[in-house]
């Protein structure tokens, strides 16, 4: 894996901050697509994002801080967090002075109509990248490469997936609790 140059990383987060619509989960596929597989392995990136979800605060911000820290320690964390935050801060503050013009703007609405629909598909790719090495034995992305092995299901991952899905549908626990349960199940089942 090549080390991302400081500027590369900075611009990845800057672009993501400016072009994510829908917040939270919508940011995950954008970051994955730009960082994996050039700078981080899929599962490694997924771990950082999962960790970001277990820490209080916005998922995107937390991911920026983690990735920044893991590549360039404190100064990396600071710059990546700044890069992700700055575009939305600047845009939102500017818009706050022209609220009326922006609020009922039909062009903004129509553009978002297209973007939101595409983002749903993009989020589904994030599902597959989290399945890599947990629910599935290898990445689905490799399917298009010549001579790649077909990924097969990994029973422990499938069990955890099912348990968490059932918990979420039935009781809607808070995310930290669900993820903690998943982690403990992982420790128990994968250590068998």
């Amino acid at each position: 894996m090549p080390e991302p140059s400081f500027l590369d990383l900075f611009f990845i987060f800057l672009k993501t901050g400016a072009f994510t619509f829908g917040g939270g989960y919508a940011m995950i596929p954008l970051l994955q697509a730009q960082i994996v597989p050039t700078y981080l392995e899929g599962p490694e990136m997924s771990n950082l994002i999962a960790l970001a979800q277990m820490t209080p605060g916005a998922v995107g911000l937390n991911t920026a801080t983690y990735v920044g820290y893991s590549e360039y320690s404190f100064i990396g964390a600071l710059c990546c967090t700044f890069a992700l935050t700055f575009p939305c801060f600047a845009i939102a503050t500017t818009v706050s002075f022209f609220k009326k013009a922006f609020q009922d703007n039909k062009y903004v609405k129509n553009a978002l109509f297209g973007i939101r629909a595409m983002v749903v598909g993009m989020i589904l790719t994030a599902v597959l990248s989290f399945a890599d090495g947990s629910v599935l034995t290898s990445s689905v992305k490799n399917l298009w490469k010549k001579g790649a092995a077909l990924p097969s299901f990994c029973w422990q991952g499938v069990v955890i997936f099912a348990v968490i899905a059932i918990i979420e549908l039935k009781w809607k626990l808070n995310t930290i609790l669900s993820i903690t349960i998943a982690g403990l199940l992982g420790l128990a089942l994968f250590s068998l």
Binding site: F130, Q156, G157, S178, A182, G183, F190
Partner: peptide
């Protein structure tokens, strides 16, 4: 590994 399987379901 467990956490990733869980997050996969949540997303």
């Amino acid at each position: 590994k467990g956490v990733r399987a869980g997050v996969c379901a949540l997303i």
